[in-house]
Design a binder for these strands. Sequence first.
DNA 1: TCTGGGGTCCTAGGACCC
DNA 2: TCTGGGGTCCTAGGACCC
Length: 402
Amino acid sequence: MHVDMNAFFASVEQQANPALRGRPIAVIGTGRTVVTTASYEARAFGVRTGMNTWQARQACPHITFVVGDNRKYAHTSARIVAMMRDYTPLVEVFSIDEAFLDVTGSLNLFGGAESIAYLLKARIRHEFGLTCSVGIAPNKLLAKLASEMQKPDGLTIIAPERVPEVLEGLPVRELCGIGGKVERQLADLGIQTCGQLGRYPVAALKRRFGVVGEKLSRMGRGQDEAPVIPPEKEDPVKSIGHSMTLEQDVTGRDTLARYLLQLAEMVGRRARRHAVSGRTVHLTVRYADFVTVGRQQTRVSPTSRSQEIYRDAVTLLDSLDLTRPVRLVGVSVSGLVHQASQLPLFDGERKATLLAAAMDEANDRFGEFAVTFASITETGEKGARVISPSWRPDGVRKVDVR
DNA sequence: TCTGGGGTCCTAGGACCC
DNA sequence: TCTGGGGTCCTAGGACCC
């Protein structure tokens, strides 16, 4: 079963503020931002996720913009996920507004998948005033497809025997995992529908797409063996990162470096909180012309210290062309190892560790950036502005929002 | 007033080792 | 008398998801 909350952020805002109900609204971030969710009333005018506010206004002149409140969405999402666990322990959080449920083991308990779906939908509507679309099918690929078929407030079942007829004429792009690029490449081979994809010789797909070719072929036939993975069975996180699009394009190393310090502190703090250290530091720079470059550097020993992450990021920054105006900077660490914080032997390092711990403690109590590096206060950006789909109710993926 | 942010996975090439 | 074959690690970039 796949559950997809309808226009989640926008619906939460309309619930919280009755004046917004029935009206075209779009949830946005701050600064240079895009529409993260449009209400159905706004979608009727052609407003779509990813549009900038100017485009959204063009499409719908009387639209109301609401700056997103990520805490509210995270909290609501966590409560909905908890509710889902009443029906099965096998709940996979796919993003903040989507989840897969393996209800195979609870069918008898609740009278079948369809009645679980009705129970869940009723409770979500009753307790949160929100609607969702539910898809029921033999596997995750098809359940996700099914939930897309009726919106809002839908319930779609794809029974095993109906799979071939559903897929026969379905455009390949409708499958989760096939994006615009793959769609075009498949079109080059004369493949438009899942039916055609499923019948296409696997060997030819493998030649063109490598290991992905085999998967594509199976997707075309609606085959997917991937299990529903509850949070406790998830692979450990592989990287931690933050990036930000700057209010204005920036030229100049020192200004950029200041943003890197802030990003390094956000990354380091998250790493320290979850007792992981990273061996590789990555820097991302997006220039004003949208050309994006990345540089990475592997360290001798893993770190979770903001200043060390910062130092590496600046080293990488200095290897780039800084005469061009920059639009976005990002810092991340990968090659994560679990590392219980240990007080270093040498005096300087020991002081740095104690300092970070004291700062972390103060920020835990008084809020992010309550205590921070002096040069960061000149830039003044705070936290993530848009919540990401990799967000989880808890653990490392629970990104701090505003 | 064009074009967010946080992730995962895959590919490809080069360095290096035996 | 040019330069095998297998492996790992590192870097850069791109596709894809919401």
